[in-house]
Design a protein around this nucleic acid. Structure first.
Lengths: 216, 216
DNA sequence: TTCAGATGTAGTCAATTTTCTACATAAAAT
DNA sequence: ATTTTATGTAGAAAATTGACTACATCTGAA
């Protein structure tokens, strides 16, 4: 008899997922939690085989949640269940110790596959993320503390200016280099951090900042 | 015998909502649609009492969806069923002719209440929005409480897309308008919200969201 | 010591975006 | 009823940025 803790603040979604699980795995008991503190309390009170974790529930500090869960029940499997927007960071969740990542707009079949494979002790990563892994040396890069560390000083300097809202030409002027040079840096930064525009860059950096400052 | 058209692309959510409705209103038939074109097709083929509309489904142009639905079946009730992120814009949906607005993270009871009251010919507006209405002196009166409310619907729509990280040409393509038009909107949005680039825009909107939702 | 890969820098030309102007229509104000 | 202002939309020209390519120097690994 397996027990799953479903952490998700949207009751509608909870209902759908719960139903789905009970349908294809009738022997599984699904317990629900809507907040992170509730989650921790439940984890302290009883054993779970799997935690399905919506990464942006109230009271949760994204990356820290995973380690906090493991602090309480270190053998529990964790399946991140996130909205599409977070796909960018999916790899980080896995790196941070999650056993799987699943976008919310997934098909029922995928959800089923993910849950069974993670509960069986495997890892589940949606195709999107697999692509990220395959055609990139991301894993190696991620082995460093922060993706920001793979930037050269000059790149970092320019990234900072970019995040201030400066335009290519401003930066070129400030640093006395050609605009084309700035463009090159920009391209390299974007490539290294795997983003395609300043907004994504900003969000990514935000996450790392939070990660550093959060008590770990 | 009433019939409800549930428009929602996430199958998990569809499942939850459908179940809920069938549970508390057993006489109601729920038909599902995952895209907007599917929605229109269904509306043309048969009569519905209510459309529950996820505002960001594939193929939908946010605000136009409401009028397009009314073009086909002008007496149908429309209940906007949107994710929390859109709460900011809720008031615009109601202005645009929706009969109700309901955030996705609602309780089952609220969903029930919303559906019954809208189907009965009333209007349902979640408390969050009611607050907005109250201190804004109502739908008609334009109040500048929120900087976002001074944007037109089209501007808001484009701002959303901008904040997703989309480029001018993508938006133009999506909305079938010229890139220069998008640029014009962009300029107007920037001017109205007093920012000079997307980053500032993003930050401004973030701040406003946090204030409204009381998060963190 | 040698050599591949990383880094700092640009040029060129193509692609994209912005600016400025314009205009019809809708909505609001007088 | 009439004038203003707001909104949705573009065209043309100008400005900015990006993609590719190149190349010298530096640096760590074989």
């Amino acid at each position: 008899m397996k027990t799953v803790l479903l952490v998700e603040d949207h009751s509608i979604v909870r209902m759908g997922v719960k139903l789905l699980i009970e349908d294809f795995l009738p022997s599984v008991t699904v317990i629900e939690a809507a907040t992170f503190s509730e989650t921790l309390k439940l984890l302290q009170s009883r054993f779970f085989d799997l935690v399905i974790l919506d990464i942006k529930i109230p009271g949760g500090e994204t990356f820290n949640m995973i380690s906090k869960i493991r602090d309480v029940q270190n053998k529990v499997k964790i399946l991140i269940f996130s909205s599409q927007d977070e796909e960018l960071y999916a790899i980080h969740y896995v790196k941070a110790g999650a056993n799987g990542y699943l976008p919310k707009d997934t098909s029922n079949e995928e959800l089923e596959k993910a849950i069974t494979s993670v509960m069986a002790g495997g890892t589940y990563i949606s195709n999107v993320i697999q692509d990220q892994l395959v055609n990139n040396t991301l894993l190696e890069r991620e082995s460093k503390e922060s993706p920001l560390e793979i930037l050269s000083n000059r790149e970092l300097e320019i990234m900072d200016m970019l995040l201030t809202g400066k335009w290519t030409k401003d930066i070129a002027l400030d640093l006395n280099i050609k605009e084309s040079t700035v463009s090159t840096y920009k391209a390299r930064i974007f490539e290294k951090l795997e983003v395609t525009n300043i907004l994504e860059l900003f969000k990514k950096v935000e996450i790392y900042k939070r990660r550093k400052t959060g008590f770990n």
